[in-house]
Amino acid sequence: MCLGVPAQIVEVADREGGLATVDVSGVRRAVNVALVDEPDAPIEPGDWVLVHVGFALARIDEEEARETLELLRRGAELERELEEMRKGTVR
């Protein structure tokens, strides 16, 4: 549960409520972006963030995001995290 998983913002659904839809390796879910959405640097679709338990903790650049994803994929950690995301998401 302590992993930070790189995710790409697909849509900022509700900026006031801090909610955005992200894509993690093909799995989509709503995450809270309130901790990283700055008025002078708003979160936009295409941005990459590090997601922990449904919250974006930090912004990261695309290259780092792809490298981290690749590493997590090889280590099977990504599969486990996605599984938790699929099973544990209330839709």
């Binding site: 709503a30 995450v31 338990v53 449904g54 919250f55 938790e84 099973k87 544990g88 998401t89 209330v90």
Partner: peptide
């Protein structure tokens, strides 16, 4: 129930 995020627990309560 297993949740991925505390937000999912909140959503459960709402539902």
């Amino acid at each position: 129930r297993m949740v991925y995020s505390p937000l999912d627990a909140l959503e459960l309560a709402r539902r």
